[in-house]
Amino acid sequence: MDKLFYLLTFMAIIIGIGVSDIVVCLNRLLSNAKMVKWHFLPIIWVINIFLALIYYFYISSVFIDFNLADHGIGFVALIIPQLVLLFLALAILPNKIEEKEVNLLSYYFSKKRYIGLLFLLHFWAIWILRVLEYSNEDYNLKFGMLILPIILFSAIIFTKKVWLHTIVAVLLLIYFLFFLSKVSLNLQ
């Protein structure tokens, strides 16, 4: 078996664990719906992370063309964005429902720094992948492509304003919906 297929299999496992954790946590919350104080903001973030996982599953065939997978450090660099998404999927919803009510908005704000830092790490990892992959070609590797994610996710790390978190979540939702509408599964 080719090492790229190992990479794609490993990515599929990571993405599958993330999707299954989201589904299990949502099932737990829905089956105990009377004990949950629902809020739209954490649900938008759950949808964002789910869409990100699905998006990376669909574009994983792109990694077949990456020369990075030929080396161990490149293999690690290629799976870091998916691992960060897995950490996000594991953090976005509470794993346990205690005897008391679960307030999803309070839970989200208790994890906002961790979530924001993971999203920043995810975008940094993607940028580093682009630098590593296209360093031999004439590719525009401006630092500017990181400015917007840094501003947006810094905003959610350092503020507790629901409207600002909502704007960032909705912008990310639009981003993932746009890019998911542009990808197709390339099975050849």
Rank of each mutant, 00 (worst) to 15 (best):
T159G: 11
W38P: 01
L85G: 00
V46I: 14
I59K: 08
K96C: 05
N103G: 13
G144T: 13
L88I: 05
H122S: 11
V46L: 10
S60H: 00
G144N: 14
Y139E: 08
W124D: 05
F123S: 00
A91N: 02
A91C: 07
I147M: 14
I167Q: 02
I44E: 06
V131P: 12
P94S: 00
I128K: 08
E98A: 02
I167S: 03
I156V: 10
L83C: 14
S60K: 04
L78H: 02
N48Y: 02
W163Y: 13
I97A: 00
L118R: 00
E137C: 03
S61N: 08
I115S: 00
G144M: 12
I54F: 13
A69R: 00
E137Y: 06
S60A: 05
N95M: 02
L51P: 09
A155Y: 02
V76L: 15
N67R: 10
Y58A: 13
K161L: 12
S106T: 10
L41A: 09
E101I: 12
L53S: 04
F143V: 06
K112H: 14
I44P: 05
L78C: 12
P81T: 06
N140I: 14
K160F: 05
L85E: 00
I167G: 02
P42V: 12
P81K: 09
N95V: 04
I150R: 14
A155Q: 06
L86Y: 03
I150H: 06
V62E: 15
A52Q: 10
L88C: 01
I167Y: 04
I49T: 15
V84G: 01
W124Q: 11
I115P: 05
L117K: 15
S60C: 02
I128H: 03
I147K: 14
D70W: 08
K160Q: 12
Q82K: 08
Y58G: 10
E98F: 00
S106V: 11
K112G: 07
M145I: 15
P42E: 11
L90W: 00
W127Q: 07
L132G: 11
K96T: 05
W124S: 02
I157M: 08
H39V: 09
K161P: 06
I80S: 06
S135T: 14
I79E: 15
L78V: 14
A69K: 02
F143Q: 04
L104C: 07
Y108I: 08
Y58R: 13
F63R: 03
I156P: 07
Q82F: 08
A52K: 04
S110V: 04
S135R: 15
L105P: 09
L118S: 01
I49A: 05
Y55S: 13
L85F: 09
L120Q: 09
D70M: 15
I97E: 01
I47D: 03
L51C: 13
F109T: 01
S106C: 11
I79A: 12
W127F: 12
L86P: 03
V76G: 08
P149T: 09
W127S: 07
A91M: 08
F66G: 06
I59L: 07
T159Y: 09
F153T: 05
